[in-house]
Design a protein around this nucleic acid. Sequence first.
DNA 1: ATGAAGTGGGCGGAAGTGGTCGACAATGTA
DNA 2: TACATTGTCGACCACTTCCGCCCACTTCAT
Lengths: 145, 145
Amino acid sequence: MLRGNYPATVDDKGRVKIPADFLSELRRLGRKFYVTSVAGDHARIYPMKAWEEIERKLAKRSSYNPARQKFLARTNYYGQVVEMDGQGRILIPSILRESAEMKGDVDVQGNLTYLQVWNHARFLDQLNNNPVTAEDIQAFDELGA
Amino acid sequence: MLRGNYPATVDDKGRVKIPADFLSELRRLGRKFYVTSVAGDHARIYPMKAWEEIERKLAKRSSYNPARQKFLARTNYYGQVVEMDGQGRILIPSILRESAEMKGDVDVQGNLTYLQVWNHARFLDQLNNNPVTAEDIQAFDELGA
DNA sequence: ATGAAGTGGGCGGAAGTGGTCGACAATGTA
DNA sequence: TACATTGTCGACCACTTCCGCCCACTTCAT
C-alpha cells in the first residue's frame, strides 16, 4: 500500500523523483507506469497492473456508455505509458504538466494503489476550498480515527 | 492502552522522544508508525497496525464518498511512515511540524490506540477555548466517570 | 553512585538534483 | 530520394544534500 506525502520537484525536463519510500513497492509492481489524469488538475501515476485492472472493468461496459466514453476521452488525452529511469524518476507528459501547472515544487502522495502528483500551491487551495464539515467529522469518528 | 500526558521537546532535526512509559507498549506493536494529522493543528502517531485498521474501514466506502476523499486528502498530505530510532525517537514530517508549530516544548499524550503531539501553548489554548458544556457533562456521566 | 531516561550532534551512505551525451525522429533542402 | 539539420527524449554520469544511524554526554531518580 502507498501512503504519505513527500515534497518533490519537477525539473526543466519534466521529471519527478519518486520518493525512496515508494520505490521498493513500485519496482515490485513492474517497470512501466501509466501517467494520466481525469480533470487535468493533477497527475496520477498508476502501476501498469493497477491501470489494467481499471481497463478490465471499463471493458465490461458498453462502448456507448457515457461514463466510459467521458472517462476514456480524458484519460487518453492526458495519458502516456512511461518507464522509470535509472535514478527512479518518471517523466510527466507535457500536456499534463502544463494543465496541472507542474513545475518546481510539487507533492507526491501515495493513495493506496497509485500515486498523485500535485502542484504544491494548487493542492493547498484544494484543501482550503473543501473545508471539513460537521458531518465529515462524524464520519471520521466512525473510522475510529 | 496508551494514556497520560508527558512534556517533551522537538529538537532541531524534528525528532520527539517517546516517553519511556509508552515505549514497551509501542515496541510490542511494531517498529513502524504512521505520523499524520487531519487538521494540521497537532500530530498523531499511529502504530502501523492501528492505521491499517482505519484504512480497512475506509476501503469499504466508495472512493467518491466525500468524507473518505477529504479524510485521505488531509491524512495523505500530512502523513508519512516513519521508524523509531535506537533512542526511542520519532521524526515528525516537516510539513506537519510547520503546520502544527512543533518546535521546542510539546506535549505527548496517550490516546488509547495512538499518540497525540501538541505544541504546548497551543494545547492550552485548545483547552481554554473549548469549555465543558452541560451536554458534555451528561456524556461524561454516561461513561460512569 | 549507578542506571535509566532524555538530548545533542557527527558522519557516511543513500537519496535527490542537474546536466551531458548520443540515438532517433521530424523537418528542411538539393 | 538521399542527405543535412534540428530538436526531443532516454540513458547515463557526477555532484550535492540530507537524514538515518550511532556515539557520547547530561540529567534525574532511587
